[in-house]
Design a protein around this nucleic acid. Structure first.
Lengths: 370, 370
DNA sequence: ATGAAAGCGCTAACAC
DNA sequence: GTGTTAGCGCTTTCAT
């Protein structure tokens, strides 16, 4: 069954181009190694070896084969070689959404390393839905991908579908939003210290009444950030107040609503630490609407260094997660294990994030260099 | 040869998890239809038919096959069926960069339609380099993808590599940055009217000395936008002045430099129309630095409706290109032709963009509703 | 240095 | 309704 979207409700013109050579360009049939073999009166085995630059093949034969391949416009059929060798040279990637900066950057990192190793990427979106993630894993298993690199969907309830992949000998590499109960390779950010550093920074800037916008608690990374926040309160000797911790679902709308709730309390916090940049953006928007001066009356900071945090006035303090590097590391784990030729105990690569202090939390004059 | 990036220069910790069941979970061998057949004492042909819900197979047999498949944890091997049928159910996508909002949105649109039709995406980045684009096309041909959807790299000099794909019976669908000499299906935005509309808007707001930031002229879409700009000057009875048209390479740095050049001229323009949002952002940044009041002293508008144009103060007037819809339309073209089962004359889908008027160009009070 | 041949897992035409 | 069989294009072992 064919499923198609309607064209968008906006105006839309479709027209046909004039007579074209489009059809005429098409070949009858793709050349195979057999065609090359026939042309040269040798066997396809030799052709295959020649194309793989096997040392046993005579230089002259190699040259002839290469020439014939060019002449016949031969392209190897990866499906056939995959079937034969059981190796697809494809990495499957599953992310919640690829139009989120963080994820597209990770993908760029994965792709960079993959393409250098002549691997391709099949990219799936889970849209944060368990069912879609499950379907994606299924597809990738069928495609016989060499490995799956993924960040868990917010809605993922259990990880049986991932175990399934491992059962089919497909190594799994989790990044960022991971399930710790699933012992696989993983790439994550260090959390406790960076949250503490951010809190120390807020403290140093004189903020004492710090509210927290917590992400979805079923995603372990957001749970961890929240726990780290609570621990840091203690370390700084600040009181814990459940009312100062508010949840939101990472969307912009929900972020705004959450920020509004915090900022309209009778005892307004003097700073908001959001577990994502959308959270910080929401706080920033509400502060504008309320006419609050940032950073004087309200400090704001987020997490991820999304592009817009640099653009806002005042610019927003945040955390650089080194997303591209996370992708590179994930790819690297795979290619290293491939190189070793054996599974090993799962590795965890912990990437230390970096504080990016901007205007939204800088209300004291800089200390002189010492 | 194995090529790996170093971990990022930042701190990095790697450790092994405790003893895991990771290894033990792996299966000996993936089940095939033959395994199912053996188990049930039938032939693999029947199994294949049963799995495809062929009407000729007895209901009981179907049930048995399905049960056995589940029991053996059978997953079809797409490589094998692709090889047999010559149909990969994969769409190849090539974009300059996937971490640009516009492109990741298009990809989301493509993916949406593709996944509904049980097709997967292999996504390649050209990084605006001709060589990388060429290599990507090569890979996609080898993968025997069902079609290639692409937006040309800035650096693409000729389109022989694309003709190559068509020669291998792989339909090509161009979007946004297209080559008109290559007669393929395409999805583009309407340009002349939207540029004229923007110019009319600027004119209505009293801007008379409008400068233009032109993108790379080897990309036809940027050439067209520029031509449309020049035509609209004429229509509005404004003088053409070559000094008011400046080129930049779409990067943020180059945008800033270009804007600086325009705004430090002795006769400063009263508006800047940039051919991309990065251009507009550059102008916006320079205006801030120079203390120019926007929109009073300088009008700024861009193209693409990147997220940050909404965030800046003042927010930036721009053009909604309906990127996601472009992706959907591209996918749709493919599936429609697939459904028809034949090539036809190349189609062009023209999507009408939408003016998004924001603060950066609104200096007159709104007219009352009539 | 090359040929011969088997087979990866699946589909589909043909036979009964 | 099911079995038989050939073969998609490639790799690779075993001969020679």
């Amino acid at each position: 069954m064919l499923i198609l979207p309607k064209y968008h409700a906006i105006d839309c013109v479709i027209f046909n181009a004039g007579n074209s050579v489009y059809l005429d360009m098409r070949m009858q049939k793709r050349a195979t190694i057999h065609d090359i073999a026939k042309l040269l009166n040798i066997t396809s085995g030799t052709v295959s070896r020649a194309l793989h630059n096997d040392t046993r093949v005579k230089a002259l034969t190699k040259k002839k084969v290469l020439d014939a391949a060019k002449k016949l416009n031969y392209k190897p059929n990866t499906n056939a070689s995959n079937l034969r060798t059981g190796d697809s040279k494809i990495i499957g990637v599953i992310v919640p959404q690829m139009d989120i900066n963080f994820f597209s950057n990770v993908i760029v990192g994965i792709e960079e390393v993959a393409s250098k190793n002549n691997y391709n990427l099949i990219i799936c979106q889970s849209n944060d839905l368990y069912e879609k993630e499950k379907a994606s894993v299924e597809t990738l298993i069928k495609q016989n991908v060499a490995c799956i690199i993924l960040s868990l969907a917010g809605g993922t309830e259990n990880t049986e579908h991932l175990v399934e992949a491992v059962k089919h000998n497909i190594p799994l590499i989790q990044f960022d939003r991971t399930d710790e109960n699933l012992l696989t390779d993983r790439v994550v950010n260090e959390i406790d210290n960076i949250v503490m550093d951010m809190m120390q920074h807020l403290f140093d800037q004189g903020y004492r009444d710090i509210a927290y916008m917590a992400g979805p608690q079923n995603i372990d990374i957001f749970k961890k950030r929240r726990t780290a926040f609570e621990k840091s309160l203690e370390k700084l000797g600040l009181p814990y107040d459940a009312k100062k911790i508010i949840s939101y679902d990472l969307s912009r709308a929900s972020a705004k609503k959450a920020a509004e709730k915090l900022l309209t309390r009778k005892k307004r916090p003097d700073a908001i630490f959001a577990s994502s940049d959308f959270g910080a953006l929401g706080a920033w928007e509400v502060s504008k609407e309320m006419g609050l001066r940032v950073p004087e009356e309200l400090g704001i900071c987020g997490f991820s260094n999304e592009f817009y945090t640099e653009i806002t006035k005042p610019s927003i303090t945040t955390v650089n997660q080194f997303s591209k590097e996370m992708g590179q590391a994930a790819s690297r784990i795979f290619f290293e294990s491939l190189h070793r030729g054996a599974f090993e105990k799962p590795q965890t690569v912990v990437i230390t994030p970096e504080l990016i202090i901007r205007e939204s939390t800088t209300r004291l004059p800089k200390k002189a260099n010492h």
